[in-house]
Design a protein around this nucleic acid. Structure first.
Lengths: 280, 280
DNA sequence: GCACTTGTGAACGGCTTGTTATCAACGCTC
DNA sequence: GAGCGTTGATAACAAGCCGTTCACAAGTGC
């Protein structure tokens, strides 16, 4: 009913940043009526790649649940007298949800009451949007720290499966015995299956810094990977060279020599919903 | 820098491990010089059954660690110019420690900076002690809340069984005679059997604070564990090294010389629904 | 055919890990 | 409080893995 929404520039999957800092974009909801305030906040929310949803009033708790929020900002003034009951209700139903009350002048008693009820923070208006965002970050950080590590999905491709929590790839139950770099590389490639990745981009994302001119490391590691893949799964070809460009990951049956010529390959490439752009 | 040796009883795990089993009294430290303020705060801290410790200045991080704090309140004004560096240092070394800055007049930029550095909250003086306490409670609550990974009371792995209530591991009825740290380490590893845990993560969760660069403690304790496991259960191998990453707990028969060639190792691990599937 | 790119194998060297020893700190008994 | 055994932190050395680099072969496109 009352949902303006703004999607951050969610990069498809910047999955493999070098030191594994994994952060899905935060989903933030704001119950507030001050359009000027909302605007300046939204600007900063966007800059962080978060997703923002603006609510103009009390939304049933069920709906809040279904929004799968990462944080909630509330202006109690908007809700009027039932605001306190609503706050209590939300905090009781969603104890894991960070809640920041951001409202006008208040008394100590009010602030203490909100915090006791279950709110995580209280920020008086007028306030600087930067501080609001910083406080949201601090609370979310605290919550994430204690949270169980996010389970990463197992990627399946051809015969192999990539298990991030083991830093290893398998054919059936058998390990490919990859080193760390090899694993990071195959994870990056398989995570962007069907896409041609340029050497410099690969290097940047696996090694974490810019590739020096003439560096052949990527080639060498692709070779190592191919060797291990070939040994463990000889019926498939996984990594394809694009001359003058880079490499593309796409599992294909090994006997598709004829198929490749006809461009049939795209029929095999499967699990990636990413748009597949064949390169002649 | 490494002056005071604060080894000793160090049991920092209870806050990070034991979910909500028992709520030990919160240990609170306050770096502040205002005796009047300290007095009114202390009154309320006592009323809640917390333990309070007053520090008159910057205390070495090592000492903070050994205090096993549940929260820290800092008045930056007391620390002077180096206060910011100190704050950063503390937050880096003890990311799990709730830190509240409670100090005099401030600018938005200062508050944002502190929150970014790792502080959980900023409360301007003068403030009502009740609000300070309520904010501490809210932060601690948030930190405790998201820790639901219910650890199985007894973990069975290979020949050994781990009994948390006894702080000991056994082969049959025979104790492995593990020290406290050794036990915490094997509990963590076995509790995440099959997963590769990175050294820093292990250190953070067993020792309770951030691992210093170059620290080899995890390796040394892994060796001690392996030694005791080997002695008590020579037919099995439990802890596996992942070069450049960390360690993985997975019971495997020791005679896997032939098995390794067939990739048996992964089939046995995790004592889950996987059954041994002979290869070829 | 020529220039350039990519594949391949091997060797070097650095960094990671295994292992042992030493010492400070602590708890215990007396 | 002194003496003694235990625990944990740290240093030092050895061993070995792994990433980088080089040289050369093979392949690609013009």
């Amino acid at each position: 009913m009352n949902t303006a929404y703004t999607a951050g520039v969610t990069t498809p999957q910047d999955e493999s940043h070098a030191p594994g800092s994994r952060t899905a974009p935060l989903r933030l909801a704001i119950i507030d009526g001050d359009s000027g305030f909302l605007q300046v906040v939204e600007k900063r929310v966007r800059a962080r790649g978060w997703q923002q949803r603006i609510l103009t009033g009390a939304v049933p708790v069920d709906e809040l649940v279904s929004m799968r929020l990462g944080a909630l900002v509330v202006d109690l003034a908007v809700l009027g007298a039932p605001g306190w009951a609503y706050l209590e209700q939300v905090c009781a139903a969603l104890p894991a949800l960070p809640v920041i009350v951001c409202t006008g002048p208040s008394t100590v008693a009010q602030r203490v009451r909100a915090l006791r009820i279950g709110a995580d923070d209280w920020l008086g208006k007028p306030c600087h949007p930067e501080e609001l965002v910083a406080r949201i970050e601090a609370i979310v950080r605290r919550g994430r720290l204690a949270a169980p590590p996010v389970e990463r999905p197992i990627v399946e491709a051809g015969e192999i499966s990539i298990k991030p929590d083991q830093f290893q790839a398998f054919v059936g139950t058998r390990s490919l015995d990859l080193t760390r770099r090899e694993f990071e590389l195959i994870r990056l490639l398989a995570g962007n299956a069907g896409q041609v990745l340029e050497r410099e981009a690969i290097y940047q994302r696996v090694w974490g810094y810019a590739m020096a001119h003439g560096d052949r490391s990527v080639d060498v590691f692709v070779r190592k990977l191919r060797q291990k893949l070939e040994r463990a799964s000889p019926q498939w070809r996984y990594i394809h060279t694009h001359f003058g460009v880079g490499y593309r990951f796409a599992p294909e049956p090994a006997d598709s020599a004829a198929a490749e010529d006809t461009g049939l390959e795209s029929a095999v490439e499967a699990f990636s919903e990413e748009t597949y752009a064949p390169v002649s």
